[in-house]
């Protein structure tokens, strides 16, 4: 009886504390992300550049910090937009803006700096302009290379699982 009691005292409590720590870690990451979402009013405040269409400014694996506000969108800005029927958002520059006088509605044409032609062929069939609701963020800040890890992880899931495994193992085994 005594033996079992001491086993409980020693093993289960630290394990629970370890689990609690892990929980706090995950929660604080979530709070950080959601807080950023609130502050920037963007569904995804940070995006990873996936293609070379904005080279040499942005390369594959660079990350962009987005912001969304009521300010009108103007030519020259780099925006992230979603087209109906495409699930991967695109990061390109605005080259044309037409703003309606009565409604304030806006027609936007975008183009990648490194692309020879504008984006009309990327829009969904027959669509000539982007409107306000297609835009999910405006690029404000830039950091190179940081996003490359996520690209590697999404392209080879094995690495992702290995990394998660190692991290879980570390969390389990390290002591305070």
């Amino acid at each position: 009886m005594d033996c079992i009691k001491s086993f409980r005292d020693v093993k289960i409590r630290p394990a629970l504390i370890q689990l609690l720590n892990l929980g706090i870690l995950i929660c604080s990451a979530l709070v950080l992300w959601k807080g950023l979402m609130c502050m920037t009013a963007c569904e995804s405040p940070v995006v990873v550049v996936l293609t070379g269409s904005m080279e040499p400014g942005f390369r594959r694996g660079d990350i962009l910090f987005l912001h969304m506000n009521k300010e009108p969108i103007r030519a020259g800005e780099i925006v992230v937009y979603n087209v109906d029927g495409r699930d991967i958002p695109i990061v390109h520059r605005v080259i044309k803006v037409h703003e309606r006088k009565d409604t304030g509605e806006i027609d936007i044409l975008t183009k990648g700096d490194n692309n020879p032609v504008d984006d009309i062929s990327l829009y969904s069939g027959g669509q000539l302009w982007l409107n306000r609701h297609h835009i999910i963020g405006r690029a404000k800040g830039y950091l190179p290379y940081v996003g490359y890890l996520t690209i590697i992880m999404t392209e080879t899931p094995m690495i992702k699982y290995a990394l998660i495994g190692v991290m879980a193992l570390l969390v389990m085994t390290t002591k305070e």
């Binding site: 080259i95 803006v97 037409h98 703003e99 309606r100």
Partner: peptide, 13 residues
Amino acid sequence: KNSLNQVSLWDHI
């Protein structure tokens, strides 16, 4: 019809 029209004519890096 439009309060603002902005059309890029030429660009350079």
